[in-house]
Nucleic acid binder design. Sequence first.
RNA 1: CGGGCUAUAGCGCAGUUUGGUAGCGCGUUCGUCUGGGGGACGAGAGGUCGCAGGUUCGAAUCCUGCUAGCCCGACCA
Length: 459
Amino acid sequence: MIGGSNPRSRSHFFMRLSRYFLPVLKETPSDAHIVSHRLMLRAGMIRQAAAGIYSWLPLGFKVLRRLEDIVHQEQIRAGHDPMLMPTLQSADLWRESGRYDDYGEEMLRITDRHGHDMLYGPTNEELITDIFRNSVQSYKQLPLTLYHIQWKFRDERRPRFGVMRGREFFMKDGYNFDIDKAAAMHAYNRHMVSYLRTYERMGLKAIPMRADSGPIGGDDTHEFLVLADTGESEVFYDKRILDLSLGERAVDYDDWDQCAAIKQEWTTPYARTDETHDAALFDAIPEEYRMTSRGIEVGQIFYFGTKYSEPMNARVTNADGDLVPVHMGSHGIGVSRLVGAIIEASHDDNGIIWPEAVTPFKVGIVNLKQGDSEADSACEALYKELTAKGLEPLYDDREERAGGKFATMDLIGLPWRITVGPRGLKNGVVELTSRRTGESREMVPAEAIAELEAIYSEV
RNA sequence: CGGGCUAUAGCGCAGUUUGGUAGCGCGUUCGUCUGGGGGACGAGAGGUCGCAGGUUCGAAUCCUGCUAGCCCGACCA
């Protein structure tokens, strides 16, 4: 975390805009056509390295890490074990599952110096199943869910939309191993609940929709979609699903009935992508609740039974002493894609508007008259106090005019801004401004800090 | 993978038709004035014109080949 104790710490040093690497662009790069891509480039979050491949600059990297942290926390809360698998894999396991040929051109194939066929992993079912089968022999070691958050690569024919459809992407993928279908369905439900909680924590409304299983295969699958005009999928849903919220309710992830009930709650209202859309069912909804819009897919959960455990011989001994293939499922959250999706869902003409839970800095300090001793010292005091309280400020201490500082703050989207200028300081006040509403209130610095503490204690 | 297009300074672009030694805006550096929504003035720095070959006295410009990237479609977390 951010420590206020050591004023020379790197985090302290680089939270001053004069020393922070934030290459913002005034003009829109011509290659970017959708709003999140444009804003991520303009806000200095990413830099394109090749088609569909991006470097994450400090500001973008901070957001990516925040999302990763939330995903980890919610996975661990649900009882899943974090681990890390490599990006490069041997082709051998993929030949065993039969997917080496099935996957086609989307898989990036590499040959090492020994002539061995390698690949940059697009997903990890084979690898995890291999790990599992070598170490688990008994039903007593189940249930088990392993996951990791790692870079993947899919050699898209046509990457586009910035990080929303890159070739390289950062993704959480998890795999559950259960003794039978009933247990695996609990894992499925548990994942649905934990995903709902994950997205809610990020300040997003992600709707689970019945979906197609695609190349992963399997029977049961839901996609989670964030509504946004620029979404790649057309979606049909019952408006009432938007009213559902997990909120503060306590969830026991080991409670099969509770998880099943929550899944039931979220899958009862109609919600489907165009792939699985059923016009007859949709038309049965009262017209006032019938909604059509576009959505960005930010996650998917699958139950695929023994699709991999059979061919790869991942079996355990059950209570009767019989050797049976384990029932599996997999689940993914597109972490890097979420950065774009959040921006698509939360921005205005001036720039990004970060939800408090994922913002790269919690508050921006704008010094309207750099070099004015009163303004400078008021800003320094605020900066130290906010830093000490873990309210991670970004202090714009550049020799810039007010307009430029405001424009930068609006562009990078910090949800709160404290504006400090000689005019207000005459009366001992600063301004606290909400990026989302634009509402601005004058108050003494201590009150602004207290307000921010209250706001952030809730996220 | 089909169709279309682009490549000139960090970013956005003009110059290519008609070959003559590279320009504008923003940004950037220095100075002065300014100071509550991208300010003004002055002085600078910055480019193998995507790469290779060819034509020519001379190529950003014409020709050939290559590479990279973008858009529409089909496809996809």
